[in-house]
Amino acid sequence: MNKDISLSKAAIIAGIGLLIMTLTVPFAEFKIIPDLVSPDSASETAANITNNIFIFNLAIFLIFITIVADIIVAWALYVFLKPVNKSISLLTAWFRLLYTGVYLVAVTNLIKVFTLTKGESYFLINSPEEISEFVLFYIKSYKYEWFFGLVLFGLYLILLGFLVLKARYVPNIMGWLLIIAGLGYVIGHLKVFLFPELNTSFSMYTAMGELVFMLWLLIKGSRLKELQID
């Protein structure tokens, strides 16, 4: 029988999953959707999406890839950090999966927007203005639900950083970077619900800790030998 997956392979899988997300998330969340949405104009938003439905559907597909990658990364990092503490590693993985579940629920709002653009007969009782308002409502619901999920993601990163600090085969700096990134996510997205006037521009810099960890997994983690944790 084959042994469990090695640390180096788990690091590579996690690193590749994170790399995929660095390509899908910015394109979908920070390019396509913002370009199509006009927060103060429901009619303009609806028209933009209807006239660029392929691009809008591409964003949904990219988010789907992100969600699949999230699940794979949760598993790979569980395997990678299981030697540190199996129970806490499992709890940490569940936090990422919980965030992924919230993200998936949020995406259903985008699918509802797609349905509205199809102009099915059961929507004909509504005026175009009302349908446009529905479109903008679902877009905003998607964003707020995703932001709520990102608070959970921040807690996940804090737990992950704690585990990394305990891992003798990972530099301590990686753990601190992940904890700082996690705090940035928690504070930056709780702001939306609790502290709307709070300046959290710093969170765009704290999130860089994830990228550093991804690079370490791909470059250094891929060379780990099992003997290092014996």
Rank of each mutant, 00 (worst) to 15 (best):
E129G: 09
K143G: 13
I139V: 14
G188D: 06
L150F: 12
E44W: 02
L211E: 01
E130I: 11
F64K: 04
V170R: 04
L7H: 09
A207V: 15
T92Y: 03
N172Q: 11
E133L: 13
F114D: 15
M21A: 02
T206M: 08
P83H: 06
N2W: 10
P196Q: 09
E145N: 10
I139S: 06
V170E: 13
A93P: 07
L198T: 03
Y103F: 15
L224T: 11
V212E: 03
L178W: 03
L98F: 15
I173E: 07
T66K: 00
I187M: 09
K191G: 06
F27A: 12
L110V: 09
G154Q: 10
T206P: 07
F56G: 00
V186Y: 05
N85P: 02
K166S: 10
V37R: 04
I33F: 03
I131K: 12
I88A: 12
P34C: 06
T66L: 02
I179Y: 06
V105W: 03
G101T: 13
E226Q: 14
L211A: 14
L177D: 07
L7W: 03
I125M: 11
F95S: 11
L215F: 12
I13D: 03
F80E: 05
F80W: 09
F147D: 15
G15S: 09
I53C: 01
T100M: 13
F193T: 06
V105F: 13
V102W: 08
G175R: 02
V170I: 15
P171E: 05
T200M: 04
W94N: 10
A28L: 00
W176Q: 06
M208I: 15
A11Q: 05
N2G: 03
L211Q: 01
E145S: 13
L98S: 14
T100A: 15
T22Y: 01
Y169Q: 03
L160R: 05
I158R: 07
R168S: 13
L165P: 00
L58Q: 01
N199M: 10
W75L: 10
M174S: 12
W176A: 02
R168V: 14
F213R: 04
G182T: 04
E44C: 01
F195V: 10
P83I: 07
K225D: 11
F213E: 08
L211S: 12
I20G: 04
V170L: 14
T66P: 01
L157M: 14
T24Q: 02
A59G: 00
G221K: 10
L177E: 12
N51F: 04
S6G: 11
F30S: 05
V107D: 04
A181C: 14
I53W: 00
E44V: 15
L18W: 07
S121W: 02
L152I: 14
A47R: 11
I219Y: 13
V170Q: 09
N52I: 00
S89N: 07
L165S: 01
V102H: 04
G119W: 08
L183W: 09
F114L: 10
L97Y: 09
P26Y: 00
K86A: 11
Y122W: 14
D40E: 14
I32M: 04
E120G: 04
K31T: 10
A167N: 07
L58I: 13
A14D: 12
L90R: 13
I20Q: 00
S127L: 08
T50G: 09
E226K: 12
